[in-house]
Every structure is written in structure tokens, then in C-alpha cells.
Amino acid sequence: MTADRLAEYRDRRDRERTPEPVPATGPLPTGGDDTFVIQEHHARRLHWDLRLERDGVLVSWAVPKGLPRTPADNRLAVHTEDHPLEYAAFAGEIPRGEYGAGRVLIWDRGRYETEKWTDREVKVVLHGSRVSGRYVLFRTRGRNWLIHRMDPPADPAEEPLPRAVAPMRAVRRSRPPDDPERHAFEFAWGGRRVLAYVEGGQVRLTDADGADVTREYPGLRGLGEQLGARPAVLDGEVTDQMGAATYVIFDLLYLDGHALFGEPYRRRRELLDGLGLVGPHWQTAPSFTGADAAVRQVARERGLPGVVAKRLDSRYEPGTDSEAWLLVPG
């Protein structure tokens, strides 16, 4: 008798409680063995599920940091139970208390070609809207596999995420700049300078001296979930001005495989604002072009140390006291 390949899947799910497809026992459907889906799964820990159609089921791996973008970055892929083919179209909320509870989104899907398929090695070519290229999965121990990108990066100019960035510092001045129209004005929060390195949904935090402070701010783990698969380096301050410790983000130094140090402040802010970063313990800092007097008045009313005038055309100069940023009293 042929083993029921979906038995483990059914045993873990209650069709009366979960919106996931739970097909009845019976013959498996037939298909072209060429469909793949990648689902972003906001479970207890964010991860991505890679599923490949094979012999009537979706053979599945949980990839904690998402598929690697370059051949230099091998990533863990944990083999999980086979899923029904209907799961390729599933997106929704798995209720609390159920296996895999949390939100499931379809991150990418498309067709694939099989180059090799054994119990220990799977080599495929993916053709999706967000992921395309040759990948190989190889078993290391038990359910643990590694996934490796065989092709060069999709973007030849892609750079690795920086491991350490010394923050750019403002220079103190007693007066605002004479050309406010060429500057953006932000509040000086008087908090702790913190840089956030986000990759594969995971967050690492360092202070102004480069010391790792990730464990001091567990509430910022959700920042990685909000960015999802988009790698980024953020600059900001942790402040108590909102009544609770809040990470106020005021600069974007790296995004989607590209360092932004050489981009003007105006462009970096545009990209930062486009990310829409806001959550229970973080927010994007407000920025006001040319409005020095109004921003300074609000800073005084709130008891803030002052404002920072940032030249709109200025680059980010790591580790420097730059005249392009001026800290002015309120």
C-alpha cells in the first residue's frame, strides 16, 4: 500500500479551526511538477516557506532568512511535512493555538524546472516575479538542509550588507544655517544613537561605539518582520520622549543590496519614507524642509535639546563630524 504523503500534514491540522486547505484522504492529484511558491510566514518567528510541486504534493522547506541573494550566502532550510497542492494559493491567518499560528502571505510564485532530485540533493531553476535563477538544496543532517544560489546575483552591482558602520555626527552651532531652504530640519531627540542591521527578517543593533546592543531592545525584533526580506541598515536614536523607549529612525544607509552613503540626504529620506516604518517601538523621524523657526519652536516646547539641520545634497560620511549636519539649540 502506498504511504499517505499528507498524513503528517493532516495530523497537525484541524479543518474546523484553520483556514488552510485540508483535503480528504484519497488519491493525490497529478500535475506538471513545475509549480513553486514562496510564502512569508509570520509565525512565532518570521520565516519563508519554499514549496516545490512533486508527485502530487508540495515538498516544503522552512527558510528562516529567506532565499540567498548571492552564491556567497548559504542559508539554512529545514525540511517540513509535505503540503497539498492547494496550499500554493493559500494566504491568510492561521488561528492562535493551531500549528504554525500566524499570518501567511504569498511572497512569490511561478514555475520551475528540475535539474536533479534525490533524497539528499534537489537542484532547480526558479522562474518567479521576485526570485529567478538556479538553486540547489542539499541535506546536511536530519531535517536540516542548506540552500545555495548557483547563479550570480540577479543584480551584478549588488553589495553585501555592511557589518559595521560608524555613525555620522552633527557639528554643534549656536545659529541655524543662513540658507534654510537648502536644509531639512529634524528634532534632536537627545537619545542613544543606534544603528539597525536588518537581513532575512532578523535585526542586529549597535550603539555609536559599535557595541552590540540587540538584547537591550527586544521590542525592535518586529522591525525585522516589517521589513521582511528587504535587507537594510538604519540610523536613528532610542529616546524616551514618547513616554516609552522608541527607536526614531532618521536615515537609511543600505537597502536591497545597495549602499546609500553616496546618495544625497534628499534621496535617502525619500527611500526611508517609502518604507513606511512605524510600529509599537519604532517610528520614522519627521523631517521638514526649510522650516527652521517652526521646528525650533516645537523643540523648545517639547523640551528637546534642539534641531539638526541637514543639507539636502549631503552624502553620509561614516564616522565623521560633518558640517553638513548642524546641531542647533531650540
Rank of each mutant, 00 (worst) to 15 (best):
residue 8 E to D: 13
residue 116 K to P: 00
residue 249 I to M: 05
residue 66 G to M: 08
residue 144 N to A: 11
residue 102 G to Q: 10
residue 193 R to M: 04
residue 249 I to C: 06
residue 12 R to N: 14
residue 20 E to W: 02
residue 120 R to K: 13
residue 204 R to E: 12
residue 128 G to T: 06
residue 300 R to K: 13
residue 268 R to T: 05
residue 63 V to E: 07
residue 19 P to I: 08
residue 2 T to D: 15
residue 199 E to T: 10
residue 210 G to V: 08
residue 96 R to P: 04
residue 45 R to D: 14
residue 176 P to V: 09
residue 159 E to I: 05
residue 157 A to I: 00
residue 105 L to V: 07
residue 175 R to H: 14
residue 226 Q to C: 00
residue 138 F to Q: 10
residue 165 V to I: 15
residue 296 R to E: 11
residue 10 R to G: 05
residue 114 T to M: 11
residue 254 Y to A: 04
residue 63 V to Q: 04
residue 212 D to R: 07
residue 21 P to E: 09
residue 318 P to I: 09
residue 254 Y to R: 04
residue 97 G to A: 12
residue 268 R to L: 06
residue 40 E to L: 12
residue 285 A to H: 05
residue 52 L to R: 04
residue 33 D to P: 12
residue 45 R to C: 00
residue 210 G to L: 08
residue 311 R to Q: 14
residue 298 V to R: 14
residue 114 T to P: 02
residue 274 G to H: 10
residue 2 T to G: 05
residue 20 E to Q: 12
residue 173 R to P: 01
residue 242 M to H: 09
residue 105 L to C: 07
residue 254 Y to H: 13
residue 195 L to E: 05
residue 9 Y to C: 02
residue 296 R to H: 10
residue 165 V to P: 02
residue 213 V to N: 07
residue 100 G to H: 10
residue 147 I to F: 02
residue 216 E to V: 01
residue 11 D to I: 03
